[in-house]
Simulated assay, not measured.
Amino acid sequence: MEQRIGSSSQPLEGAGFDPAFIPGLTSPASARTEDDGPEKEPEVAAAQDAEESAPEPEETAEAASPSEPEEEADVDGPVFEASDRRARIVADHRGVRLSLDDQGCEFRWDEIGAVETETARFGKRYTVTVHTPDRRWYPIEIEAPARSHFTEWDTQLDAVLDAYFEEDAE
């Protein structure tokens, strides 16, 4: 009797399992195998293109630095900021910014329908959920150093929401 190890089913194909199945959504996958090894030529070409198209450091510093201090100097309102090793939330005059690892999103105050906070019954997780008017929500969990930070964070976030969110609602 012959026995096979592993699954005998074939992998599924289609847009639900592979976004590259629809032309134009993503760049086509290379037909490399593990035996071929890494391709060096495209990386070198990409690095050369990046060097040629990158502006000089002096131009970048001059263009970026004048606008940032002016924005920060104009507004002296409350700011809420909380972070842990992976997640970060900042709420200030510009809106609410959430980031998790290398992903981030930003909401202006006119894009926000509600902001909800929740604390875990056990543990030290503080959850902030941003709700938008089109019925979408974006939660982020931050692990606090101690449960005593929850009340402090709630107070700071309420001060920011009172200062900026209520102004836009009126």
Results as ranks from 00 to 15, higher is better:
Glu81Ile: 15
Asp84Ser: 07
Gln48Cys: 00
Ser53Arg: 12
Leu98Asn: 01
Ala47Phe: 00
Glu81Val: 15
Glu51Arg: 13
Lys40Thr: 10
Arg86Pro: 02
Pro69Ala: 07
Ala73Phe: 14
Pro42Met: 01
Phe80Met: 08
Arg94Val: 03
Val75Ser: 14
Pro42Val: 03
Glu58Trp: 09
Val90Ser: 10
Ala63Glu: 06
Val79Lys: 13
Glu58Phe: 08
Ser67Trp: 11
Glu72Ser: 02
Asp84His: 10
Ala61Asn: 12
Ala87Ser: 15
Asp49Tyr: 05
Pro42Ile: 02
Ala82Ile: 07
Glu62Asn: 15
Val90Gly: 06
Thr60Trp: 00
Ser53His: 06
Asp92Asn: 15
Ala45Asp: 01
Val79Ala: 12
Thr60Tyr: 01
Glu41Tyr: 05
Val96Arg: 02
Leu98Cys: 00
Asp76Asn: 10
Glu52Ile: 08
Leu100Val: 10
Gly77Thr: 09
Ser83Leu: 13
Arg97Pro: 01
Glu43Met: 03
Ala82Glu: 07
Ala73Glu: 15
Ser67Ile: 14
Glu68Phe: 06
Phe80Thr: 01
Ile89Cys: 04
Ala50Phe: 07
Glu58Leu: 13
Glu59His: 05
Glu52Ala: 11
Leu98Ser: 01
Glu52Trp: 03
Glu52Met: 06
Phe80Ser: 05
Ala46Tyr: 04
His93Lys: 14
Arg88Pro: 02
Pro78Glu: 14
Ala50Val: 03
Gly77Phe: 06
Val96Pro: 04
Asp74Gln: 14
Pro55Arg: 08
Val90Cys: 11
Gln48Gly: 00
Val96Leu: 12
Ala91Val: 04
Val79Cys: 13
Glu71Trp: 08
Arg94Cys: 03
Glu70His: 11
